[in-house]
């Protein structure tokens, strides 16, 4: 019972970065406890090609489901299949704390009556103890849990573990699907990337976020231009902005939106309401640009510029472009 399972999420045939994070997390635990890492890779025809990357990140075995019925996320078939597999004996299982991961692991946990810790930022798994940290209360409080059951189920907060290469054999095995994967009640009929194919907020190393200080929706091009200058940036927004329809709800960062912690967060024309700070205060470096020098955003910012975003952003985009070109 020392083996560790890692569920590696795919989407539209691609392996997601969080799918490497779970394998890396499982590898760290397996190295300490002397077990193997079994990575689960599920998707439509062709998905098995990603097995090599999972091996490179530390999977001893890659359990593959390659089937038309898994081209879109198939929650019920995956739940039945994973519950059967986990029942064969694992110490712990790692999933991503993504929309799909949360959906899947909660089903598996209830099906098997297992302890499940969600959105975990730190973990220790040994033969006799599983302890985790889980941020709550809009990231204002860290809750520390001890999980009783084996296997312990964990969903990993994006970025809690960074993918590390650590090559293992990665022997490919077909994972037998439990039940008829086409005869399910819950059907995902379409999966589509958001318009523009932009970097996702949860995965981008840099986030440029805009607030009411931009005055109107059209001025968000300034935020987008700065994101483009960085090249590795995603665009986010405050709730005020998404409520007004300037940006889609999926761009909202904050208590009721996305919780992010990029390497660099640039808050443009954002005053820093608690609602918003809850979603980004764990970013590594925070830059704030705001007209009002008393704005609460400056209390969490490492670097601030007091000024109108309309003036500052174009110059910043130019300077970043130059710095990137010179680097």
């Amino acid at each position: 019972m020392t083996n560790i399972l890692a569920f590696s999420e795919t989407r539209l045939g691609d392996l997601r970065r969080c799918g490497l994070e779970t394998v890396t997390a499982a590898r760290t635990v397996a190295d300490a406890t002397g077990g193997q890492v079994h990575a689960v890779l599920a998707g439509g025809p062709g998905v098995a090609q990603h097995a090599a990357r999972l091996a490179a990140h530390g999977a001893d075995v890659v359990l593959v489901i390659e089937h038309d019925a898994f081209a879109n996320y198939n929650p019920e078939a995956l739940t039945a299949t994973l519950a059967a597999r986990l029942g064969s004996g694992y110490r712990a299982a790692f999933f991503a704390a993504s929309a799909q991961g949360h959906d899947l692991v909660a089903r598996v946990a209830a099906r098997m009556k297992l302890a499940y810790a969600s959105d975990v930022s730190e973990f220790t798994v040994t033969a006799d103890r599983v302890a985790v940290a889980h941020p709550g209360y809009t990231n204002k409080i860290v809750q520390r849990f001890v999980l009783n059951a084996t296997p312990a189920l964990i969903s990993l907060r994006a970025g809690a573990v960074l993918p590390v290469e650590h090559a293992k054999a990665g022997a490919v095995e077909a994972l037998a699907v439990v039940g008829d994967p086409s005869a399910v009640r819950v059907k995902v009929t379409l999966t589509e990337k958001a318009a523009g194919g932009k970097l996702d907020l949860g995965e981008a190393p840099v986030i440029i976020a805009g607030g009411r200080g931009l005055k109107e929706a059209a001025n968000f091009t300034l935020v987008e231009d700065l994101a483009a200058a960085f090249g590795n940036a995603a665009v986010g927004a405050t709730r005020a902005v998404t409520d007004d329809g300037w940006r889609p709800h999926s761009d909202q960062i904050g208590q009721t939106g996305r919780l992010v912690s990029p390497d660099l967060y640039v808050a443009c024309g954002i005053s820093g309401a608690i609602q918003h700070l809850a979603g980004m205060r764990t970013s590594k470096t925070i830059v704030a640009i705001n007209k009002d020098k008393e704005a609460p955003i400056f209390k969490v910012a490492d670097y601030g510029i007091v000024g109108d975003v309309m003036d500052v952003l174009p110059v910043l985009a130019e300077e970043v472009k130059k710095a990137k070109a010179g680097a």
Binding site: L114, N148, D302, Y303, G304, I305, L316
Partner: peptide
């Protein structure tokens, strides 16, 4: 009960930042 809450903690406070300057000249 499948898990226990051992303790709650406040996360580490962010160190105070600084204002680099005013307007586009600070860029």
């Amino acid at each position: 009960i499948t898990y226990q809450l051992e303790k709650m903690e406040l996360p580490a406070e962010r160190a105070a930042g600084r204002i680099v300057g005013e307007g586009k000249d600070a860029v």
